[in-house]
Design a protein around this nucleic acid. Sequence first.
DNA 1: GGAATAGTGTCTTTGAGACATTATATC
DNA 2: GATATAATGTCTCAAAGACACTATTCC
Lengths: 240, 240
Amino acid sequence: MVDALWQPPNVLLAVDLVILTIRQSRLRLLLVERGIEPYQGMLALPGGFLYDEHEPIEAAACRELAEEAGLDASPHLEHLGVYGDPGRDPRGRVVSVAFLAIAPWLPEPRAGTDAADARWWPVEDVLTPGVRLAFDHSQISSDGLERARTTLEHTTVAAAFCPETFTLGELQQVYEAVWGVRLDPRNFYRKVQAAHGFVEAAGPHRKSSSGRPARLFRRGPETRLHPPMLRPTRPGEETP
Amino acid sequence: MVDALWQPPNVLLAVDLVILTIRQSRLRLLLVERGIEPYQGMLALPGGFLYDEHEPIEAAACRELAEEAGLDASPHLEHLGVYGDPGRDPRGRVVSVAFLAIAPWLPEPRAGTDAADARWWPVEDVLTPGVRLAFDHSQISSDGLERARTTLEHTTVAAAFCPETFTLGELQQVYEAVWGVRLDPRNFYRKVQAAHGFVEAAGPHRKSSSGRPARLFRRGPETRLHPPMLRPTRPGEETP
DNA sequence: GGAATAGTGTCTTTGAGACATTATATC
DNA sequence: GATATAATGTCTCAAAGACACTATTCC
């Protein structure tokens, strides 16, 4: 299989980012409209090639996060997977490392270098069988969404969707938006309190509209949840 | 950041395999002794470069599995992560895609092209702070072991460590070897039976040494476990 | 019979889900 | 007052862990 003349092939390395946030109680995904070929005019994930031979992969992801989402302080950046099928990019053999970013309120994205336009899309509008994204980005986005859903079960990143201080009702909206379900506020309240180090009290109270004012909380010291916050209908994952 | 003359850098793509099996009730990892520079003479994970520009990454992993472990029928091959820090390989910018393979009894590995020797090492002998592997393979191996531990909780791959038919005692040894704990046979028995589609009865009975003969089972149709088989001391993951 | 392993049953605790009830704000 | 949301409590069920007990083999 290997002889003295054989040389391993070169590939191009790219990073793609699944960046999720919540606006108007809906889970939203950042997509750019591609300004250049290939797939010009189609929606795609923010991303790009490694800048040079010495740039770490995570650094490239942070750079793209800043360039295309205008987000400097990297919030939560999680390795998602590798997408390297030959033929996924007509420019040659491009292997993409995908990352998942979860962020609270974000500024309106500005169009990046290769992007004609960048917008927050509700995931239910864009991750449906009818909508096609550039490259294999529909697959990457679906994988990122699924990863976010399980990450919310076992880690405290849900609070990363929220501002500095938040109410448990707001935190519940995060879970409801990402999981796409309705939760019982009473059980949710109890479970969050039972999870050690998830949230801690902050300031007295506060409230916007009607109803009793809610306590304010901030992120706790823990990063993993004990016990986990499991999604409902867990056993129904089968497809009989 | 990008001008008309800029070109993305080329990188070399490699695959590395964390291949686990169980022999003599101990969890073992396949390591090769490197026959060429860099890191000549040190222990390393099986792996190698992409063969050509058109080889899919998973195909390269299967090829290395066959070449270096002598294993043709790919058992369970799971994407583990990407390791691409600049400087991890003195030959240049090498980005490695790591896979986790879990296999039942395997033939004695034969030395591969770049490998002077290949052996099954007990993980507790080789994944300790005192032992150094080539490249960042200690890190990759640790990540693979941790992945295997959580995979056993939620999927039925533990049966992939076992031969065609097996007893629940043998299956329990798999869990004990991978998790590094002792389990209660009675509770284990009940939980495996309760997990729908994990195992199904096969043949009448059988037994080797002393004691009552055990029933034989084979792998069931399910691939995910409902409910999961959670490790003990789960809440003790904290380090206070 | 003794030792060893296989298989079954029982009890207790813990956490999840359903849902009643009280508390505090706006209108 | 009505209404809406916040916070707490109660009940039931499912699953995990501890462990007693019976069953079947080899010695």
